[in-house]
């Protein structure tokens, strides 16, 4: 069961990495990068490292996404095209 979860999450992480590179909209790319660190945290937990998983969830999934969004707000000056 654990190995099935690790294989599925690895496939999803690879697809999300390609998606983060090839998407034209920047906010979609930020969300895809958030998916990568979100699943990496679960894989760290499956590999029996709960402290690394906690740090990855706090910094990788939370803080990096927020900092990227603030930077996107700074560089786009408020125009939001979908």
């Amino acid at each position: 069961m654990i190995s099935i979860i690790i294989i599925v999450f690895g496939i999803i992480m690879i697809i999300a990495a390609f998606l983060a590179i090839h998407l034209k909209n920047l906010l979609s790319a930020i969300i895809s990068a958030g998916v990568i660190s979100l699943l990496a945290s679960v894989i760290y937990l499956l590999l029996a490292a709960p402290d690394v998983a906690m740090t990855e969830a706090a910094i990788g999934s939370g803080l990096t996404t927020i900092i990227f969004i603030f930077t996107l707000k700074k560089i786009k000056k408020g125009d939001l095209d979908d």
Binding site: I31, L38, P50, A53, A57, I66, I69, L72, K73
Partner: peptide, 28 residues
Amino acid sequence: IYLDVAIVYGLISFVGIVAIARYLERGI
């Protein structure tokens, strides 16, 4: 000890989703 990871995960991901929603509302 794995349940603590779930608590931190829920708190931090909520903050990230709120940041994305505030950006979509142009209010960040």
